[in-house]
Simulated assay, not measured.
Amino acid sequence: MIATLEEEPLFQKAYMPGEKEKIVTGEIDGVKWKGKIDSLNLEKRYFCDLKTTADIHKKIWNPEYRQWQNFVQAYGYFTQITLYKELIKQTFGVDCTPFIFAVSKQATPDKMAIKFTSGDDVAELSYAMTELKEKEHHMLAVLNGEEKPTMCGKCDYCRSVKHLTDFVSASAIEVE
């Protein structure tokens, strides 16, 4: 991933000067959180996160919202970004602008520099924090073994614990 981005002037300018793998901690509604920022530039008030995805432009079906989404939305990166923003603010007292550098896993990798500054992005970050606050106590209970996780049925974990219990109609198989 770094090799794909190394020759990019924007990557050199934005990602390389920051402090790498900076630990940030904080608390949201009584739940303690910890994160590791890929590149943090407190002086210029921004941070960068690195992401890989199969295809930057592939649409991904979200059954919860019943809509197609891009990889940032579908993989919960709005939640991660808003959490990082909050933890940086709690740790250092600085409000930072987030950026993602994404690289695809294609034979010839695609790459993209992503910002979160449009009105839609700001609204989605705000919604992600609201949703995080609603779900964090359940997440903590799952981590503590007090509650069962909500299964999506498609991620690595769900596939690893899946058992065949019944037949599925051939015409009802979900596709993405």
Rank of each mutant, 00 (worst) to 15 (best):
P63Y: 11
H137M: 12
V72Q: 04
T53P: 06
L40N: 10
E131S: 11
I114R: 01
R66W: 12
F167P: 04
L132F: 09
T4W: 01
G93C: 00
K13M: 05
Q90Y: 09
M1P: 11
A141H: 06
K36C: 12
F92G: 00
A170K: 13
F99P: 02
M16V: 15
G93L: 01
L164N: 13
D156C: 08
L40H: 07
S169L: 05
T91M: 08
G26C: 06
G18N: 06
V161F: 13
L164C: 12
K22M: 11
K115T: 10
F11K: 03
I100T: 02
T82G: 06
L87M: 07
H137C: 08
G18R: 03
K111R: 11
A107S: 05
M151L: 10
E174H: 15
E86W: 05
I81Q: 01
E131F: 10
I114K: 02
Y84V: 03
K58F: 09
G93W: 00
Q90I: 07
A113G: 03
I28A: 09
Y15M: 03
E43F: 00
V31C: 13
T79K: 15
S160K: 07
E124R: 11
P109N: 11
F167I: 00
Y157R: 06
K148E: 15
G145A: 07
N144S: 15
N144H: 14
E176L: 05
I60V: 13
Y15T: 01
Q67P: 04
V72H: 02
F71T: 08
G30L: 09
G153S: 07
K115Y: 02
G153Q: 07
E19K: 05
K13P: 00
A102W: 11
T82D: 10
Q69H: 02
G18P: 06
A102C: 08
Q67A: 15
Y157S: 08
I114P: 02
L143A: 07
C48W: 02
E6N: 15
V94M: 04
E86Q: 11
R66L: 13
Q80C: 01
L5M: 05
L5C: 04
I100R: 02
L164S: 08
I2C: 01
E124N: 08
G119F: 10
G18M: 09
Y127C: 13
F116C: 03
A123T: 11
T150Q: 09
F11Y: 15
N144M: 15
Q67R: 13
M1T: 10
N144E: 15
E134Q: 14
I2Q: 13
C152L: 06
T4Y: 01
A54G: 10
V72C: 03
P63K: 09
I88E: 01
E7H: 04
P9K: 10
T150L: 04
Q90C: 10
N62E: 05
V175D: 07
Q69C: 11
C96R: 05
L10D: 09
D110E: 12
A128T: 03
V142R: 03
T53V: 14
E64Y: 12
N41L: 05
C158F: 09
F92D: 00
Q67F: 00
L132T: 08
G119W: 09
H163M: 10
I88F: 05
S169E: 07
